[in-house]
Structure formats: C-alpha cells, structure tokens
Design a binder for these strands. Structure first.
Length: 296
DNA sequence: CATAGATCCTGTATGC
DNA sequence: TGCATACAGGATCTAT
C-alpha cells in the first residue's frame, strides 16, 4: 500500500507530467472521492478549471499541487488503493475511475483511480506553516516526515518517549512522524529489534534513535528501488511494482525464517490488521516494575 | 486532552 | 457451485 516512498514516486511523476499545464475540465465520477472537498463536485471543478498546476509537493503520504491563484492547492491522498494515472484522452476508462482532469493542451489526462475509495482529492486553501511556507489546510496538522530536511529528530524522540502507548502505534501516529504505514513500521521495528507493543515511554533514548535511523533507512532504500519503476505514460502509483521487488524482512513473512536468527516470523493481530515480527530478535520487555526508571 | 477501538470500502482468497 | 467469512489497511470518528 502506498506509504512515503510510493507516494514520493507518484509525486515525481506528477511533477514531470502535469507541472505547468492548465486545467480544461474536471469530472467527478464518484462523490466519495472528493468527500474531503468542502463544497461538492461543482465547486471542486470550478476552483480547478482554468488554473495552471505548479510542481507537486509532498509531506508524509499527502500530495499537493499548488494552483496559480497562489491561494489554493489540489490535495491528494491515495488511501490504500488510490492511483494517479497519466493517460491519453482516448484510453478506456478504468473500472474504478473516480475523477478525470483534462488539460487545455489536449494532451494526456490526469486520472484518479481508486478501488476502495479510502483516498481522494480536494481543493484546499493554503495556510502558513512557518518554515515550510504555505501548505494545504489538511497537511498543516500532520508532522513532517523523516526524509524532510526540516524534520526535528530531537523533538520527535522526546514526543515518542512521552507516549503512553505501544511503540508501533506511536510510529503510525501521523502527528508524531508522517509517512510511516503498517509495512514500514514493521520493517523499522525489525531493524531496530523492538517489539511493536514495547511501551513507547520505556524506550531508552539510544534505542529510540536507532528506531528513527531504521525508519529513515528503510524508506530511503525503498524509494531508491521504487523510483526505478515507472514508464512514460503511466505514473506508477499504487506502489505495487516497487513494493513487490522490495526485500521485506518481517512484513508479510509469517512462518518464514528471520533473516537474522532464522526463528520463524510471527504474525499477530493489531488494530484490525496484522503485525509481523521476530519473537526472538524483538522480544516484549518484562513488566513495568522491573524496568521502572531505567533509561530516564 | 489522550488513548483505544470501530468504521469506511471492494476485490481476492479461502473454507464449508 | 454458491455462500459466508477473513483479509488488505489509511485516516477519521466515537467512546472511554
């Protein structure tokens, strides 16, 4: 599913294929795809039509394209199955085509395709976000991602170690650190040899630092691989191609030997989904009394 | 306020 | 063959 590296690949495709082009028409085929847009499909189309698109930007799993009115941006989130495709106008409609955006040059269209409709597009006002400049309203409330040069490592480590919850849940909290989803959370925890249910407020500073380094490394490596896989007329988007070629150490590997110690990777239920981990490399710490005060 | 759990959605895979 | 169930899982809403 699209997490930070996959979304970054999409951003690059968008930047390449839509920057500088002017919107001719917008068709919303499924209202749910713009449920985040405040005033419905007609307003969505009217705010976009005639606008020229700037270079796409990204924070975490959010994408946005500033408009030339300098007050709004087209914001996108892929959810779990969303795709942004660049297609010739005469290409047959995809089964799950939700939104079509055509351009005044008569060239390729931008299509939002989404089977499960957890993703969507919206036009939002830009708001001031300090050093980051102007960002869309819905982006302002999430944290920077670890590949952002302005990501504040120290602030993150402090906030993480103040959370009274399991470390995996904290990693998935987009207001602490953005861009990490279920797959990269499991991979990061495996690398850092931490159990996902390890209480966040009982992780020592060095181990928390190791975890952040692991998250950054795994997403950087995935981006390097995912970036190789799109062809000219098809802005790859759901990350599937990159995803399959990636080497996963824990995620989805239930029953497979841990690449470090050969113990079988275990799957457990977590937040209506799954967590994968090595029970030997990533043991759950003992009860709090034994550890109280350690690492403080 | 912080945290935990339910919910949205649809296609695919599996079990009986 | 057909039906039921589990699963995939981001973000958000509701409950505690």
């Amino acid at each position: 599913m699209p997490e930070l590296p996959e979304v970054e690949v999409v951003r690059r495709g968008l930047e390449r294929w839509t920057a500088g082009r002017t919107v001719a028409a917008v068709t919303t085929l499924h209202p749910r795809a713009i449920r985040r847009h405040a005033n419905g499909p007609a307003d969505f189309a009217s705010l976009l039509t005639g606008r020229t698109l700037a270079a796409a930007r990204r924070r975490g799993k959010y994408l946005w394209v500033p408009l030339d009115d300098e007050q709004h941006a087209l914001v996108g989130h892929l959810g779990m199955s969303g795709q942004l495709l660049i297609q010739p106008p005469d290409a047959e409609d995809e089964t799950h085509l939700r939104i079509r955006i055509s351009f005044t040059d008569g060239g390729t269209e931008l299509r939002f395709v989404d089977q499960r409709t957890f993703g969507g597009l919206a036009v939002e006002p830009l708001v001031d976000d300090g050093a980051a400049g102007l960002v869309p309203h819905s982006v302002a409330h999430i944290a920077r991602d670890p590949l952002d040069p302005l990501f504040d490592d120290r602030a993150f480590l402090t906030a993480l170690r103040a959370k009274r919850t399991g470390v995996k849940r904290a990693l998935l909290d987009q207001t602490l650190i953005s861009g990490v989803g279920n797959i990269y959370a499991d991979e990061s925890l495996w690398r850092a040899k931490l159990h996902g249910e390890h209480p966040a407020d009982r992780i020592t500073k060095p181990r928390a630092t190791t975890l952040l380094d692991a998250a950054r490394a795994v997403m950087t490596e995935a981006l390097a691989v995912g970036g190789t896989s799109f062809d000219s007329l098809y802005v790859n988007v759901n990350g599937q191609s990159g995803y399959f070629s990636r080497a996963l150490n824990a995620y989805g590997q239930a029953g497979q030997p841990c690449p470090r110690c050969q113990t079988a990777i275990q799957r457990i239920a977590f937040m209506n989904r799954s967590s994968y981990f090595c029970p030997r490399c990533q043991p759950l710490p003992r009860r709090r009394d034994a550890q109280r005060g350690v690492g403080q």
